[in-house]
Simulated scan of single mutants.
Amino acid sequence: MTAAMTFNEPTERVQLRSAVAALAAEYGSDYYRARAREGAYLTDLWRAAGGLGYLGVNIPEEYGGGGGGIGDLAAVLEELSAAGCPTLMMVVSPAICGTVLSRFGTDAQRRRWLPGLATGETIMAFAITEPDAGSNAHNITTTARRDGGGWVLDGRKTFISGVDVADAVLVVGRVQDESTGRLSAALFTVPTDTPGFEARPIEMDLVSPDHQFQLFLDDVRLPDDALVGDPDAGLLQLFAGLNPERIMAASLATGSARHALERAVAYAKDRKVWRDTPIGAHQGLAHPLAQVKIELEQARLMTQHAALRYDAGDDAGAGEAANMAKYAAAEACVHAVDQAVQTLGGNGLASEYGLGAAIAAARLARIAPVSREMVLNYVAQQSLGLPKSY
């Protein structure tokens, strides 16, 4: 006898979505844009969400979290984004860093970091990208070497989100095996006040409360327990964080697409140009908006599917699904924002409606945290078995 397939989310997650949506509605896109223009972070919303337990729904209960999965955390971010308050730090702090520490950290590391990540009182950034590595993690040159009872870290990172609000950064580096000379990936927790750690802001045309930084690691001395897990399992640990990253990025994009679509539909129902007929009655606008709705729902289903596979412990299947979800969600978000601007006409670029700033943010979804081209490479090689092109 086979079990019935269902596409309905658990009751607890539906209730979580409703509660998060109610909180986010108290802030909304006006709050988000105001904080972004001020160059400030969404601190009030972050603290409120953390205090209610929403930021730590995926953290184990014994460390102060909700004991749920990445699907629950993704639902939180989607609802915040749908209300006009997307934040990259949810992708980074509880999703990537929280997941890696939960799965691979020592008990001491979990006790130190996870309770704060669960409440939002501690924020952790994630540093993998380098100026000369980009999407090729094999070219990472940040290295860590043994020095007495600790480590010395040297290197450079770029486009690292939220270092200005972070207490620590989970840094991806390379460690040399003393017997073989082989370099392997390793992850280190680096408090941002560590001597030798320097963060410089990157000036961006994108107006966002999540700021980007270059990191300079010059003779950064760390204790032995800064190393997370086993350096021989560094790649496994890394991908354990990158699959949730893609799922969360997809949720941010689908939430942002929902926000843009809702703005466009409301305007199309109200705006009248010819007689007393709303512009939404005309197929030239109605059909493109309907197409956006279809693409959005397809992306949401793929994202929920990816989260389900990850939470079931299917890392291989989750990798394929997470990449597909991220691709679909990014495309849906770009299309949704573009069509929303087109629906509003000149008002689509007026600050009052907040869609102009969303153009650049939506475009970012195609680039980060993994480009659409690298997703297509992954699917071509891993899903279709085609030869590697690089």
Rank of each mutant, 00 (worst) to 15 (best):
A108K: 14
F104D: 14
G134W: 10
D147C: 00
D72H: 04
P94D: 04
C97N: 07
T143N: 09
A75P: 02
A82G: 13
R103F: 12
A133N: 06
G148W: 05
L117S: 11
A40L: 02
W46A: 04
R47D: 07
R111A: 15
T129L: 15
Q109K: 08
A74Y: 04
A36N: 07
D132A: 15
H138D: 15
G39H: 00
G69F: 03
W113K: 13
L45V: 07
G71N: 06
I70R: 03
N58L: 01
T141V: 14
P94T: 02
A48E: 12
R33D: 03
M89K: 09
Y63A: 05
I123G: 13
P94H: 05
A36I: 05
I128K: 15
F126D: 13
T122L: 12
I96P: 11
P60I: 02
G84S: 01
S81V: 07
V57F: 03
Y54M: 00
A83T: 06
P115K: 08
A40S: 11
G134L: 10
S81G: 05
A127R: 11
G105T: 10
E62V: 03
R112W: 12
R110E: 10
L88W: 11
P60N: 08
A144L: 06
I59N: 03
G50D: 01
G51C: 02
A82S: 02
V91K: 12
A95M: 09
N58H: 01
L55F: 06
D72I: 04
Y63F: 07
A75R: 02
A118V: 11
L55V: 08
W46R: 02
R33A: 09
S93F: 03
T129P: 13
R145A: 09
T141R: 12
I59E: 01
L42W: 04
E121Y: 12
Q109H: 09
M124R: 12
N58M: 00
G150T: 00
R111P: 14
A108N: 08
T87S: 10
A137G: 15
N139Y: 13
G120A: 13
T129Y: 13
T143W: 08
G149K: 08
D44P: 03
H138L: 15
A108F: 14
Y54I: 04
A49F: 04
S81E: 00
L45G: 05
N139H: 14
G69Y: 04
I70W: 02
R145D: 08
T99F: 05
R111I: 15
W151Q: 03
T106N: 12
L101P: 11
D44E: 09
C97G: 07
R37W: 02
L117C: 13
L45K: 03
L80W: 01
S102T: 14
L73R: 07
T142L: 06
Y63D: 07
I96E: 09
